[in-house]
């Protein structure tokens, strides 16, 4: 598991058991991504800027839809996703949360 993600997860768990008396605390994130090739890269690249429910609540998008999302994150929001990671991200998202192309 990506060390950064471990850190986030630890933070989430600590936040969950920490003083419930603190009324201004936001409840923890509870989303875990499905296992699959590329999952660690998705965790590293996407969870930096937003919670993972931004991914898991989407309708089953075709691969072109996921690619468009990744490109939007890169070009409009300046996400530092390396060019050579785009295909891996798109494949994972399509496989786990999308609409894979119809098999011939």
């Amino acid at each position: 598991m990506n060390p950064r993600w471990l850190g986030i997860l630890a933070g989430v768990l600590i936040a969950a058991v920490d003083s419930p008396a603190d009324e201004w605390k936001l409840p923890p994130e509870t989303i875990a991504l499905k296992p699959g090739k590329g999952r660690e890269v998705v965790l590293g690249q996407c969870a930096m800027c937003h919670s993972l429910d931004y991914i898991t609540t989407q309708p089953p998008l075709p691969k072109a839809g996921w690619v468009a999302s990744i490109e939007k994150m890169r070009s409009k929001y300046g996400a530092p996703v390396p060019t050579n990671s785009v295909a891996l991200l798109a494949d994972y998202l399509t496989e786990q949360y999308g609409k894979p192309a119809a098999k011939p």
């Binding site: 768990l13 969950a16 509870t30 989303i31 875990a32 898991t56 786990q96 949360y97």
Partner: peptide, 24 residues
């Protein structure tokens, strides 16, 4: 829809939206 509770947390109740992948 891949929504899985993180172990050790108190599970929240869910609400079903009227569309595919609509568990919240």
């Amino acid at each position: 829809g891949g929504m899985a509770a993180v172990p050790g947390l108190i599970a929240n109740e869910t609400y079903e939206m009227p569309f595919e992948n609509g568990s919240r």
